[in-house]
Write a protein that binds this DNA or RNA. Structure first.
Lengths: 284, 284
DNA sequence: CACCTTAAATCGAAAAATCCGATATTACCC
DNA sequence: GGGTAATATCGGATTTTTCGATTTAAGGTG
């Protein structure tokens, strides 16, 4: 059965007329007639009552309506979501950590745009775990994340090691093993491990956030301190809006590039990776 | 786009092989090949990577999968729900009150089976209000209910007047305007009105149920009293398991037959109504 | 390296479906 | 009975789909 037949059905149901439906769908009335007939034959059930002033749904037709709707919609959505513009060759699906949107996703999109304009790009921004799931399910071509899980069909490469430093809105030092107004930013499992090792007696912090930028905004507005990626806060330190807490331990946070072992499109992946590496000129 | 194409897609995705999918769908492998090709062309996107040992979904293919699934499913469900067996001519959709299943729906189905075997019958059993909704939405050909709302396109006929009598598991009379272990069965709006008129000072009952048979079962098991349809409890009174409470007021509950004014199939409706009337030999 | 095997792609022809345009039919209104 | 506004039907052109046979591609194997 054809989706266009169901679309015709929906249009007739909506307009109450074969002719109007035909106009809307840019076909002749006889075509609509044939399509409805085909539907009715395959379902072996009448869908419309033909009256002098148009067509009206039967009880069966009404029942059919919701199914037709979902079928037509899912096809339309499929096209919207995955159809590729004519001038594009393929789509790369990249997943990045929420925190990495500014630092990685945005410049990568930029790079792709100018260096591989025949490739469309889609980016999913999520936490590590959902990204892993999507990778495993084949919904992503590649992803950049912390805490990857090794899997036979996945290749994991080290991508970038970030330095997490303790900063504060006022110049200060570590006091009583903890600074005031401390916000715990969840930078992933390995960070949590290092953190509790470095501050074994620290009480659980009042505030705990999952996304770096959220925590940073909070601190900038209300004051406080927390661990953030050095690169991100560097400009703010230079401006004098933030201060590095001396003597506080630093943490390293490794980031990994993960992708399917035998990808659906080798060149595609290679280009995407090239783009990713190129936006990290500071790495060796 | 054709549903069968998507089915082919799903089958290839499931089996990982064009050939196996072809076998399952009873077509040739070249057909599968063409169908997938058609899909890929219309979406302008590759769905499978063809490998030596079969076909594997691309990221795009994975994304498409859920849409294909819902589209195919909705068509299949539509067929299941509304397709008519070859030897049937039409389906009547009847709605009855929950309480009326035994008294009306079951015997009607029986009647239809023997007197109009070329008509399929579907019954929806619900409360009055949802039945009205379904009628209004054209999902039912006719319904039997209490408290119908008048609407221009609906015909309402009186169908049956039931007598509600107060019964109890022990012989007793009305005491202090209320009997013990009383269960309030919600027999609809007009009953509620009559009830509160007859027992103006009655405290709200401990138990209140919406379906007659549920309340009846409760009483039979745990003892108690309540209003029930005379016809239903008559055999139980005869058995000595229930007793009629003397002096208690009786209530009438009118039931209506409601259907579309100009139905999609006049004969169909007429037959159905004839069947309904015929199972009420006790009415004038 | 030549050969084999397995899986998918392609090709040509037959079959089926779809669509159009014109015309027929139907029901109702005047 | 004629007119009108709707859908149904018909014949033929066109397009799509299918099949069966063959070809191509990518790995294995001796």
């Amino acid at each position: 059965m054809n989706i266009e037949h169901m679309r015709a059905f929906l249009e007739v149901a909506a307009t109450g007329s074969f002719q109007l439906a035909a106009d809307k769908l840019h076909v002749t009335q006889s075509t609509i007639s044939a399509r409805i007939k085909a539907l009715e034959e395959r379902l072996n059930r009448q869908l419309f009552v033909r009256r002098r002033n148009g067509a009206e749904l039967t009880a069966g037709g009404h029942h059919f309506h919701r199914h037709a709707l979902t079928a037509v919609r899912s096809w339309d959505r499929a096209r919207q979501e995955i159809a590729l513009p004519d001038d594009m060759k393929a789509i790369v699906n990249l997943g990045v950590q929420l925190n990495h949107w500014d630092r990685i996703a945005a410049p990568w999109l930029n790079w792709m745009n100018s260096n591989a304009s025949n490739l469309a790009a889609q980016i999913v921004s999520e936490y590590s775990e959902p990204l892993m799931h999507r990778l495993r399910d084949g919904l992503l071509d590649l992803a950049i994340l912390y805490d990857p899980q090794q899997r036979p069909e996945l290749v994991i490469e080290s991508f970038l090691v970030e330095k997490l430093i303790l900063i504060s809105t006022t110049p200060r030092q570590v006091e009583a093993e903890r600074v005031q107004g401390y916000i715990f930013v969840d930078w992933g499992d390995s960070f949590k491990a290092q953190h509790s090792l470095a501050f074994p007696n620290a009480p659980s912090p009042k505030l705990s956030v999952g996304i770096g930028s959220v925590g940073l905004n909070h601190i900038l507005q209300h004051g406080g301190s927390g661990y953030f990626i050095e690169e991100t806060v560097k400009p703010l330190i230079a401006e004098g809006r933030l201060f590095r807490v001396k003597d506080a331990p630093e943490f390293k946070r490794p980031t990994y590039l993960v992708y399917q072992d035998n990808p659906s499109d080798h060149d595609l992946l290679e280009t995407a990776i090239k783009g990713l590496r190129s936006i990290l000129p500071d790495t060796v």
